[in-house]
Every structure is written in structure tokens, then in C-alpha cells.
Computed example of a mutant assay.
Amino acid sequence: MPDEPDAPDFEVPVGLFQDLEDLKAQVARLSAQVQELSDGTDAADGGIPADDESAAGDEGGGGEEEEEAQFPPFILLLDSPQYDDELRALIEWVEGVLVPGYLAEPSADARWCHLWFEHSVAIARLHACWLAWQELTDPATCGYTGPSAWHRDHLDPCLRELRHSSGPFAGCTKGEHQIGHRMPGIVPSAWRQIAED
């Protein structure tokens, strides 16, 4: 039996192990996606997965509804009562996670409105940030770097835009709420002339 070679004498950086774990998670996720695509889709049947085809026959298109429920649409595209349910869940996340964890005391340079849910721009931006948070805080879909990407790519730009002195809360001061300050002014005269013709 030949002698085993000596192990190399060097230290492996801790970050290398974290990178390897991230890569393993990504490979596992991609392998699962490839498996799903190769198992379920048959080009001869028009690209409908076999499971979805049987579900569509049994439930009258239930597969499409299931897919919609899995991926919530952008809040501004919803009608009541779905809009109300989504807004309620968004308020719970903003008030339970975002406000206590990320917002400092409002100031002239970093505004915040306690009635933020009455500002449509704030609803849109915060909902988009929340959707990204749901995806990027799940290690199964994004590994361990998701939260870092969420902070850099979603939270920081969102808060910068919302809390800017010219953002949607520009007219709101501590304890005072003003919603009408962001409404557009008079229609330009060129548009009025076209409408009159």
C-alpha cells in the first residue's frame, strides 16, 4: 500500500467555505429546476406539463390559478378584495419589520409619514421591496447572499427615494400628514387645445 501524500500546509479562508455553500445551494436549485422542466413538459402536447394537463381537465384550469397564487402580482395591478388583503399584509410587514428595524427618527433629510399607506407611490415602492424581501431571504432560492443583495439592490434605493426631501412624504412633517402635495398641477395649454379640437 503506497504512502498517502502529506496534506498541504496552508489555511483555507473561512469565506471560501461560505462561497462553496452558496454554490452548492445554487446548483441544487438549478438541478431541481432542470428536473422539473425535463419531467413535466412534453413538446408534442403543446408544452403543457402532464400534471397541469390532468389538473386542468379535473378542475377547469385550476393549474393557472395555483400559479398565480404562488407568485403574487404587483399590488397596483390588483382589485378589491385582493388589493385590500395584499395591503393589509404589506402594512403588517412594514410596521413589524421595516419601521422598527430600519427607520430612524424622521427629519428634514429623512422623511417618513405615519400614514404612508395613503401615499400610492409609497405603497408601490414598499410592495416591490417586500416582494424582493420574500424572495431574497429564502436560502433555498438565493443562497446565503440574498439578504445582502436585498439591502443593496432593494431596501437602500427604496428608502432613499421615499425619505428624500422631494419624495412622496415631502409635505408631511412630524405628526402632520399631507397627501395632496404630490398631485400634478394644471394640464399644459397645448394639451387643452388638442382636447378642445
Rank of each mutant, 00 (worst) to 15 (best):
M1F: 12
M1G: 14
P5Y: 05
D6W: 13
D6Q: 13
P8E: 15
P8H: 09
D9Q: 05
F10V: 05
V12P: 09
P13K: 02
V14I: 13
G15V: 05
F17R: 13
F17A: 12
F17C: 06
F17G: 02
D19P: 02
D19C: 07
D19I: 01
D19H: 03
L20C: 09
E21N: 07
E21C: 10
A25F: 01
A25C: 04
Q26H: 11
Q26E: 08
A32T: 04
V34T: 15
Q35K: 11
L37P: 00
L37H: 12
S38T: 14
D39S: 11
G40R: 12
G40Q: 15
D45K: 13
G46R: 04
D52M: 06
A55L: 15
A56Y: 09
G57A: 14
E66I: 04
E68V: 06
A69I: 08
Q70R: 09
Q70S: 15
P72C: 04
P73C: 06
P73N: 03
I75Y: 00
L76N: 10
L77P: 00
L77V: 02
L77A: 10
D79P: 14
S80T: 15
P81M: 11
Y83R: 15
D84T: 13
R88N: 15
L90V: 01
W93T: 00
V94C: 05
E95Q: 07
E95P: 01
L98P: 01
L98R: 02
V99E: 13
V99G: 05
A104D: 14
P106H: 07
P106A: 08
S107K: 15
A110I: 07
C113F: 02
C113G: 01
W116C: 01
E118Y: 10
S120Y: 00
A122M: 02
I123T: 06
A124C: 01
A124L: 05
R125C: 03
R125Y: 05
R125F: 05
H127G: 03
H127R: 04
A128Y: 15
A128T: 10
W130K: 09
L131R: 11
Q134V: 00
E135R: 10
T137C: 12
D138R: 12
P139H: 12
A140C: 07
C142R: 12
C142F: 07
Y144W: 06
Y144S: 10
T145G: 06
G146W: 00
P147G: 02
H151E: 13
D153E: 08
H154Y: 12
D156P: 00
E161W: 09
L162C: 06
R163P: 03
R163E: 07
S165P: 05
G167C: 00
P168W: 02
P168G: 04
G171C: 03
C172Y: 00
T173K: 07
T173M: 09
K174H: 11
K174Q: 14
G175V: 04
E176I: 03
R182M: 08
R182Q: 13
P184Y: 07
I186N: 11
V187S: 15
V187G: 10
P188D: 05
P188E: 08
P188W: 06
A190S: 10
A190W: 08
A190F: 14
W191G: 09
A195G: 05
A195F: 05
D197N: 14
